[in-house]
Design a protein around this nucleic acid. Structure first.
Length: 948
DNA sequence: ACCACCCGTTTTTTT
DNA sequence: AACGGGTGGT
């Protein structure tokens, strides 16, 4: 794109005034914004320092700078310090320079200085907050009743962050500015929701949605005696009585507000005393500073303000932008359809209701001083309609994503939504496009089979850099999913089949092998021996059987105990971590990030090994993630979450995991104390000592009713769908398991059921890993056992002399007889076995306690199953398994085990002829069994090992 | 055919 | 928590 289109030109050239730009996916937003920036700074008298360009990530800021350098006279060096940055980094700088007095505006007797750290790691902040809240509850016995009713005090941190993102801050003796209004809620707005939910359906014949929901009012609940009963709440008609709205909304919440205020305010003081701020507090104090310090605001204000990705901004960020705007030259660029960061406090209404909010916020800020000194009523809208990424079919289809219901009963205002969508027009030269959907019991395999089908297939041609069509490669394909879990599992399956894939985005750092080993060694150091050693020994290649025995006896390998001593002598956690990684040769990105994370945790708090263990355990539980940049696979399929794919584009998008998992309630839905627009601050449970009876924790009936009045909003799920579809240039494939979700069912695309053929999935059979059966220690146990290849429970039982639990008397007899014990056959079966054994000359081997370490594809395994007899002569070996009679599946079942033995023995006794057979003791018949080939066995063995 | 009621199932995203 | 689906009544 070298020349701007009409709408882009309008934005680029209109440098003065207030603009709201609707820039849909792939419409050249960055191009236009950077050109506009270049245009502004090239005016005489305007320097880069006069222009604020806000992005939401540091990467985006860097990209902007790079693009700008290519479009104007300024070089990278001159732009290095230009205010092209995120809200967070801007706030950080202001506080470093002028933040000294910021806390005083809230009545806090502390300061922010250059040494105040930013805690960005959730796990670190959780730990700090935990420490704070423990102290707070000890220091405030007056709040004991409230704490008794709160199931998880950690919820309070989420509540504080939510309030901070809206600009609700505590002061020494109340709430900052009009913050309290938020906490009280808005009855009129609530009543509108209530009435909407309370409308009878089907022309009045069906009860309202609200009344239906209130069916479970009081179920499994424990209300205070004064609570209205169910009949009173639901009424006897199709609607909930009107009076219920006020009865539920109106409540004396002064105690609750007081509690939240004190927790919030004291946590701010705690953080400052500990000399740290979180992201939310950074913006909180910067806002207070800019609001109160008029002189500073004047200095800090910019002549031009541009905010990119405005749909990702939070309420406090919108207000910050207003404080930072010295003139009406404010330009926000974004796409409401791509607002998918609500959980991060992004507020889509910032862009949807831009004009209203702009005026409302300005009025509020100007209440007691002239803070927003420009006319906020004159906003020019610019709509980008030309799309440079996708084909028209994909653009048209993507709009359906915003209109499909999420559940069978959800009704969407299609007209209203359509009106808000600015339809895009494709600029693509070709219309070679496909949109399809598949469902399969084995979704992973179906996806991989589809990938194999697509690669090199003329039906899926894509556009190359010169605008010509070519057949696709792996690198042209991205698999996008809503959840990380699905992506991770797909990646594992892909590795098995050898399909080249690369995962991009945050990984659950503490669930990696590196972290597990580190945790194991920390546990060994902390004397949590079994849990630590089991992992370490397993990594070293010991079988589960061996590990059990080492743990029982405590005779750990010498080099490992020596290593433990070495670690024990080390002084820092960072040192221990480094040493563990060195031992295992972990020197990649993941190890680096773990080390870095641990060091950052360590420098923030004083921590012991035990503390670190608990931090890692909590991180694992919380599934907290850290960004680890994967080395870009040369030519591989990208697997990532839709969130991390935002802003990217791929010729072919496979939108996976379109399955019917219910979407769980979002944002604070289940917390004991929550803030929610428009009902305000609410408490779900109360502790009332004075009330009769037990237990003392009572559910709040008002909160129960209010909750059911607030409709579950699936809009963000739909926008997620929209974002995913619009990543595609030419082709989209939706995939689901056996139960597609309502989205997929309602989209105008036929769902094809497929049964993937594993043969077509695997990349290249000759490059597949082969079954490597190795006897690690050929000198090892001379006598090996049929019982060696079996699961650990059986092994233990046999060792303990309880073998009969797992084998018939016949087997017990056979074993003893073969071992030369003086046993007499008691039954016909046993006689036949005796005859069989007698007929065999040479060496009979049937032992019970030896073991046979096996390796499959480089990993140690133990196998299920027992083989009863191995008969070795000078030039033959016979493997025999006894079976009482011919069951339906006997032969095929035993063939696997016999085959494993066959290959094991083949490796040891390469000079002998090996045969396998089953001996049916009921009729004394022996049936030869042909062993599976190694390749066939590999699949079967994998199945078995996976079950362990 | 439609409705109220009842019950079993499933459970995220990350600057 | 709230969805889909089953049951039994009108």
């Amino acid at each position: 794109m070298t020349e701007p289109n009409t709408q882009q030109r309008e934005l680029i050239e209109s440098t003065e005034g207030t603009y709201l730009v609707d820039a849909g996916a792939g419409t050249g937003k960055t191009f236009a914004v950077t050109r506009r920036y270049a245009n502004i700074v090239e005016q005489s008298g305007v320097e880069p320092d006069d222009v604020l360009l806000v992005t939401f990530t540091n990467n985006a800021a860097t990209e902007m700078k790079e693009r700008i350098v290519g479009q104007c006279q300024y070089g990278m060096r001159e732009l290095a310090d230009a205010p092209i940055r995120t809200f967070h980094s801007l706030c950080h700088d202001h506080l470093q320079e002028h933040g000294h007095t910021a806390p005083a505006y809230l009545g806090i007797d502390d300061t922010i200085t250059g040494s105040t750290r930013i805690v960005s790691d959730d796990v670190v902040e959780d730990g700090l907050f935990r420490e704070f809240i423990d102290g707070f509850s000890d220091d405030n016995p007056a709040y004991d009743d409230l704490f008794r009713a709160i199931s998880a005090p950690m919820e309070l941190l989420g509540l504080i962050e939510e309030l901070a993102s809206k600009g609700v801050f505590p002061t020494a003796d109340g709430w900052y500015r009009n913050g309290e209004r938020y906490l009280d809620g808005n009855f009129d707005a609530f009543k509108r929701l209530f009435d909407d939910r309370n409308e009878p359906r089907n022309d009045g014949s069906k009860q309202s949605r609200l009344r239906s929901k209130l069916y479970s009012y009081g179920k499994n609940k424990n209300y205070l005696p004064a609570a209205p009963d169910k009949a009173e709440i639901r009424g006897d008609g199709k609607q909930v009585p009107d009076a219920v709205a006020w009865a539920a909304f109106e409540e004396d919440r002064s105690d609750l507000k007081g509690f939240v205020h004190d927790v919030y305010y004291d946590y701010l003081r705690f953080a400052l005393r500990r000399n740290y701020l979180n992201f939310g507090f950074l913006q909180l104090f910067a806002f207070v500073l800019l609001c109160e310090n008029h002189e500073l605001r004047g200095e800090a204000a910019f002549e031009y303000v541009m905010v990119d990705e405005f749909q990702d901004s939070s309420e406090i960020q919108f207000k910050l932008a207003l404080l930072l705007a010295g003139t009406d030259n404010v330009c926000v660029v974004g796409d409401w359809k791509q607002s998918i960061y609500g959980f991060q406090y992004a507020d889509v209404d910032n862009i949807v209701e831009f004009e209203t909010r702009l005026n409302g916020f300005a009025e509020e800020l100007n209440r007691d001083a002239d803070r927003v000194r420009f006319d906020t009523t004159d906003v020019t809208r610019i709509e980008f309609v030309e799309n440079y990424r996708s084909t028209q079919s994909i653009l048209d289809f993507s709009e359906h994503g915003l209109l499909v219901p999420a559940t069978g009963s959800e009704e969407i205002d299609v007209e209203d939504t359509r009106d808000r969508i600015v339809s895009l027009e494709s600029n693509a030269d070709h219309e070679n496009t496909t949109i399809e959907a598949i469902q399969s019991e084995a979704e992973d395999e179906a996806i991989l089979a589809k990938v194999q089908e697509i690669v090199g297939n003329g039906d899926y041609r894509v556009e190359d850099d010169d605008g010509n069509l070519r057949v696709p490669e792996y690198r042209d394909i991205a698999v996008l999913t809503r959840t990380r879990d699905f992506g991770r599992e797909l990646l594992e399956t892909a590795e098995e089949y050898g399909v080249p894939t690369a995962y991009e985005g945050g990984i659950e750092l503490f669930r990696t092998d590196q972290a597990k080993l580190l945790l194991a060694w920390l546990r060994i150091l902390e004397n949590d021996l079994d849990r630590g050693w089991a992992v370490v020994l397993e990594e070293a290649g010991y079988t589960l059987d061996e590990i059990d025995r080492i743990l029982d006896r405590g005779d750990y390998p010498e080099d490992m105990t020596a290593f433990r001593e070495e670690l024990g002598a080390m002084e820092t956690l960072g040192g221990i971590t480094r040493r563990v990684f060195t031992r295992y040769g972990y020197d990649g990105e993941t190890a680096d990030v773990i080390l870095h994370t641990i060091q950052s945790i360590h420098s923030t708090t004083t921590m012991t090994q035990g503390d670190l263990i608990r931090v890692i355990e909590r991180s694992i539980d919380a599934g907290s993630t850290h960004e680890v940049s994967a080395s870009a696979g040369a030519n591989s399929v990208t697997v990532q979450t839709i969130h991390s794919a935002k802003g990217l584009e791929y010729p072919i998008v496979i939108l996976a995991n379109m399955n019917s998992g219910r979407y769980p309630p979002s944002g604070g839905g289940s917390s004991s104390i929550s803030y929610q627009d428009p009902v305000g601050l609410r408490q779900r449970k109360v502790y009332t000592e004075a009330a009769q009876g037990h237990p003392h924790v009572y559910d709040n009936w008002r909160s129960d009713v209010l909750r059911r009045c607030l409709p579950r909003d699936y809009d963000e799920e739909r926008r997620l769908l929209y974002v995913a579809i619009t990543r595609a240039e030419s082709h989209v494939v939706f995939t689901a398991g056996d139960d597609p979700n309502t989205f997929l069912e309602e989209l105008p695309v036929d769902i094809e059921s497929v049964v993937p053929d594993p043969e077509t999935v695997a990349v290249d059979q000759s490059e597949q890993p082969h079954l490597e059966i190795d006897i690690r220690d050929p000198e090892g146990p001379v006598r090996y056992s049929p019982h060696s290849l079996m699961d650990e429970d059986v092994f233990e039982a046999v060792e303990a002399g309880r073998g009969l639990e797992f084998g018939s008397r016949v087997h017990d007899f056979a074993e003893r007889y073969a071992l030369g014990e003086a046993v007499e056959p008691q039954s016909e079966d046993e006689k036949r076995i005796r005859d069989l054994l007698d007929s065999m000359d040479g060496e009979l081997r049937v032992e019970e306690s030896a073991y046979l370490p096996l390796e499959v594809d480089g990993e140690r395994v133990s196998l299920h199953g027992i083989v009863d007899l191995v008969h070795v002569t000078g030039d033959t070996i016979e493997i025999v398994d006894y079976k009482t009679d011919r069951g339906r599946h006997a032969e095929s079942e035993y063939r696997t085990q016999l085959s494993v033995y066959w290959h094991v023995l083949d490796a040891v006794y390469s000079d002998r002829e090996i045969a396998a057979s089953i001996f049916y003791t009921a009729d004394g018949e022996r049936v030869a069994v042909a062993p599976f080939s190694r390749d066939d066995l590999r699949e079967l063995v994998r199945d078995q090992t996976e079950r362990m």
